[in-house]
C-alpha cells in the first residue's frame, strides 16, 4: 500500500481537531518525517542495497558501510553471500584475522564482521582487490517533502506514523494537559503497535510491558 504525503498530512490533522493554525503544515511534515523514520527503525521494512565505492582493496580488511544503509544485514562478495561473524567470537576463533588474506589462508573471502553499524571487516581480506562488495540492509529513509510523495508502508505502519506524529505535536502543550490528553492513549495504542511491528529481540519498551501486565490505568 502506498500513501501520499498530503494524505498523511490530512490524517494527522484530523487527529488534531483540524487545527491547521496551531499545527502548521511544516510542523506536521517535520513530525511525519521523524515518525516514518521511527516506524522504519522498529520494523526494518524499508530495505535496500548499495555497492562499496571502488570495490575491495588489496589486503584491506576494513570497509565503511555505504551511504543510504542504516543497518547492514548481509554482505555479498563478487555476488557470493558471506557469513556474518560477530567481532569477539570471530577474533577468538581467528586471532590474527586482521592480517589474513586469501593468499595466507588459501581460502576465499568467507565472512563479514560487523564493527558497529557504520563499518565492517572482511575475512580473509581480498589479496587481489577489485571485487564488488554489495551491502544489503535497512535503508535510511530520505524524503522530498512534495505533496505527491508516496510512502510504501502498510496500513498498520501508516496508523503508527499518524498516531506518533499527532501525539508528539501536542507535546507543545506541555504539562498535565499533554499528559492527560495524549500520553495515556499513546502508551496503550502507539506503543502496542510498535511492539507488534518490531523486528528486533530485546526489551525496547520495558515500561510498557510492566504497564500491560498491571493493566489499564
Amino acid at each position: 500500500m502506498a500513501i501520499t504525503r498530503s494524505e498523511l498530512r490530512s490524517r494527522v490533522l484530523n487527529r488534531l481537531d483540524g487545527d491547521d493554525v496551531f499545527y502548521s503544515e511544516s510542523s506536521r511534515d517535520m513530525m511525519i518525517d521523524h515518525s516514518l523514520r521511527i516506524v522504519n527503525l522498529f520494523s526494518g521494512r524499508m530495505q535496500t542495497s548499495a555497492v562499496v565505492p571502488g570495490g575491495s582493496v588489496s589486503e584491506q580488511y576494513e570497509y565503511d558501510v555505504p551511504a543510504g544503509i542504516l543497518l547492514p544485514t548481509a554482505v555479498h562478495f563478487d555476488g557470493e553471500p558471506l557469513k556474518r561473524s560477530p567481532l569477539i567470537s570471530h577474533s577468538r576463533a581467528h586471532p590474527r584475522w586482521m592480517n589474513e588474506t586469501n593468499q595466507s589462508t588459501r581460502m576465499d573471502t568467507a565472512c563479514w564482521i560487523p564493527i558497529g553499524i557504520t563499518k565492517f571487516g572482511l575475512w580473509p581480506a581480498d589479496f587481489y582487490g577489485g571485487a564488488t562488495i554489495t551491502v544489503f540492509g535497512i535503508a535510511e529513509p530520505s524524503f522530498t517533502g512534495a505533496d505527491d510523495e508516496e510512502f510504501s508502508i502498510g496500513e498498520g505502519d501508516s496508523e503508527a506514523v499518524e498516531e506518533h506524529a499527532s501525539h508528539i505535536l501536542t507535546a507543545a502543550e506541555a504539562g498535565k494537559v499533554f499528559y492527560d490528553g495524549t500520553v495515556r492513549i499513546f502508551r496503550r495504542s502507539y506503543q502496542k503497535k510498535m511492539l507488534e511491528i518490531q523486528a528486533w529481540q530485546g526489551e525496547i519498551m520495558p515500561f510498557l510491558k510492566i504497564e500491560l501486565k498491571v493493566g489499564p490505568e
Partner: peptide, 28 residues
C-alpha cells in the same frame, strides 16, 4: 510530566539501538 515522558522516549531509542546491535553481535 514531560521530563518523565521524554526520558522514557529517550530510553526507547537507546534500547532500540541496543537491540539492533544485539542482533548484529549475535551468533547466526
Amino acid at each position: 510530566f514531560q521530563a518523565n515522558y521524554f526520558w522514557n522516549r529517550y530510553m526507547e531509542g537507546v534500547n532500540l539501538a541496543k537491540a539492533i546491535m544485539g542482533e548484529l553481535s549475535a551468533e547466526n
